[in-house]
């Protein structure tokens, strides 16, 4: 039976309308807003003042915003290396037929189910605390006083401490996706390789890695999106500290005027927040396109 195109369109209509309403309209409006100076989120369009590219120019010149960009790149790179390193390791261990597989998988995934705020309180006040935190207590017990005296949350260490704490909570999520991808690989390949005398590393590099390339690409894109929108951890770890601020948190400060008061010099401008949002979106689009190109090649079917 052939369905008329018109009927198809009719059935798609509700979804398309909803999509346009709740996704496309806000996006277009935000793009428009980023070219204006806007006193408040609820300001009417008549109150907007056209500013051209001034919002973007101000951002590029602001050392505070630039440090937020540096931070997010650091998070993407260092955090990405940590997360994927451990996620692969755990996924491979789980796949190797270890006992109590489901238990370990749940255990590694568990931190994901805890709220960011709770996790960061635990890290800040029970692990990194310089007087009674886990790290200082542990190093004191072991007699390593120089390590015990490190201030994990001062200017120099705060950024790395935040990344470690964040990765702790995120490894499980990426491990789950990777190990689901690995589960799809037929066991025959491994058996054949085993019979040919391949060792664990060879099996990983020659079978597992090539066959989960698609899954890996997806997780890298997911990680890029997550990292670009890195927000909650910088809010809880540093607030407006330039060592932890990220573009997403900076945008939030600009749009909602956090820490703003009548004495502050800077004029409150929602438009500058909008331009940060646009820049984040563009970054994600560009990086996704690059990744797609990098992982190009024929799809493996098995």
């Amino acid at each position: 039976m052939k369905i008329q195109k018109r009927v198809i369109a009719l059935f798609l209509l509700p979804a398309v309308i909803i999509y346009l309403g709740i996704f496309l309209y806000p996006t277009l409006r935000t793009i428009l807003m980023s070219f204006y100076t806007i006193p408040a989120l609820s300001s009417r369009i008549t109150e907007w003042k056209f500013a051209g590219l001034a919002n973007y120019a101000d951002l590029v010149r602001s050392p505070y915003f630039l440090s937020s960009v540096r931070n997010v790149l650091g998070i993407w790179l260092i955090g990405g290396a940590l997360i994927f390193g451990f996620a692969f390791l755990y996924a491979v261990i789980l796949q190797s037929g270890v006992r109590w597989k489901s238990f370990w998988r749940s255990l590694i995934f568990l931190p994901n189910t805890i709220s960011v705020v709770v996790l960061s309180v635990v890290w800040l006040h029970y692990i990194y605390n310089p007087s009674y935190g886990l790290l200082t207590t542990l190093f004191h017990r072991l007699g390593m006083t120089t390590l015990a005296d490190i201030q994990w949350t001062d200017n120099e260490h705060l950024f790395y401490s935040m990344i470690v704490a964040y990765c702790f909570g995120s490894i499980g999520y990426f491990m789950l996706i990777l190990s689901a991808g690995m589960d799809r690989i037929p066991v025959d390949y491994y058996e054949a390789a085993l019979l040919e005398g391949a060792n664990g590393f060879q099996r990983f590099y020659k079978i597992t890695l090539p066959l989960i390339r698609e899954v890996f690409r997806t997780t890298v894109v997911l990680w890029t999106i997550t990292a670009s929108n890195f927000f909650a951890w910088s809010a809880t770890f540093g607030q407006d500290d330039p060592h932890t601020v990220t573009p997403a948190y900076y945008m939030y400060q600009k749009v909602f005027g956090v820490g703003n008061n009548v004495y502050a010099q800077d004029e409150f401008n929602v438009g500058s927040g909008a331009s940060v949002g646009i820049m984040i979106t563009l970054t994600i689009l560009i990086v996704s396109a690059l990744l797609n190109r990098m992982f190009k090649g024929e799809r493996l079917e098995y």
Partner: peptide
């Protein structure tokens, strides 16, 4: 004022003065 006006520099205060 709160902070004895040290925060009046907005991003400059949080980005440079305090660190």
């Amino acid at each position: 004022p709160w902070g004895f006006s040290i925060n009046s520099g907005a991003d400059f205060s949080s980005g440079s003065v305090i660190p």
